[in-house]
Design a protein around this nucleic acid. Structure first.
Lengths: 215, 215
DNA sequence: GCATTCGGTTAATGACGACTAACTGAAGGC
DNA sequence: GCCTTCAGTTAGTCGTCATTAACCGAATGC
């Protein structure tokens, strides 16, 4: 560990921030390839080639193929959780006086808008996340699972303000189903229709989240 | 081609209907394994072992690994299309007099119920279908794609009776999104809660399908 | 009964692909 | 200016498969 990259992330970067760039290029390449052909359908040579370097150069950035997938999925899970927390919090600034229902609805809308936007802008990673989870190393699996559970819980807590009578299990199921709804389409949406598709998905997601519980 | 298994499927079966049983066992085993680990994460030995025979015995039933996947996915796509047509037709018996809205609503509810039931009873195949499509041989890909498109169209036509003003593209997107909603949860639903989860998914799906179109 | 068919089995064979080894050349620090 | 570090490179190595070959033994048809 050299002094530049030591504990404190002070010194912006010498010239080997080129490394960070390369690393990101590898992650992007991997995301696209994994999304298209699945983790075990992609070779390290494929990833390297797509990033402009070839083959085992990847070992200068990651411990191995699984580690690339790990970085990808831990990254996306963290981003989702962080963004979800921000969206939920931003819409009802903690204890906003009289427990306003309006605020709660706003929080849910913000969550939905955030997730739709995320899914439409990073369809590859979204796809990989629920497709190649089982190819992760055990530890990464545990970490990703826990981040995902926490994200689901952000949704469930927000929902519980609108459906105080519903069980936690039902709210989590609703959240998961809506993730499926939102995540299932990005592949087939043309870039030009992103905005309109996004609005439609938001409307459908909110309708599903607030649909009456069956008897 | 012996006389028993010739063009006309008359003679029920000699004693080598054991073959049909074995073939189905192989397909079931493959479905489970593919769902859990992805097409290229599973070896022929794995599939054979799971079906009680080991290794290259599979070549007595299928041309190769890809052919197993092909049989699986063409089968599920056909079942979905057939079942969807039946559900849509059963609910409004062709030209049922005065173009009743009630009938159209019933057709949609029947479609939703059919798909929910299918997804909950065969979660493995559902998972494989949208996960390993890209591992199919080109011809199988074409066939599956066309069956899927036709299935989406059954939904879109049914929806168009309720939303005559909506574009075909919007209706197809709605259908796809709802497939995502329904298909995303079977993995995580305990067998004991199938029925209640199914009811909830139906309610959410219908709400999403009839959600107002955004301005 | 007897020859054939056929579902299975266990050894090759041949690719392919993750990972390692040995080497190179350009920074960077001093 | 010299020594070290380090991102890359190319050539193995070793396992893991899909697929094929060579054999079996029980049904089946005649």
């Amino acid at each position: 560990m050299n002094e530049a990259a030591s504990a404190r992330s002070e010194v912006p970067s010498p010239r080997s921030e080129a490394k960070a760039v390369r690393r990101q290029a590898l992650l992007d390449a991997a995301a696209g390839l994994f999304a298209a052909q699945g983790f075990s359908g992609v070779s390290l040579d494929d990833i390297g080639a797509a990033a402009g370097v070839s083959g085992p150069a990847i070992y200068r950035h990651f411990a191995g193929k699984q580690a690339v997938l790990g970085a990808l999925l831990v990254g996306v899970s963290s981003e989702l959780l962080e963004g979800g927390r921000a969206a939920a919090a931003g819409a009802h600034p903690s204890g906003a006086g009289p427990d306003g229902l309006a605020d709660d609805g706003a929080a849910l809308r913000a969550l939905v808008a955030f997730h739709v936007d995320f899914a439409l802008s990073k369809p590859d990673v979204i796809r990989v996340q629920d497709r190649d989870f089982s190819s992760l190393a055990a530890e990464d699996q545990a970490e990703v699972r826990s981040l995902q559970l926490e994200y689901v819980d952000v949704w469930a807590r927000t929902l519980s303000r609108l459906h105080p009578e519903a069980s936690a299990a039902e709210l989590r199921l609703r959240a998961q189903a809506v993730f499926g709804l939102i995540n299932s389409t990005p592949h087939s949406v043309r870039r030009t229709t992103r905005r309109t598709a996004g609005k439609l998905l938001e409307s459908m997601a909110l309708a599903a989240l607030t649909a009456p519980a069956p008897s």
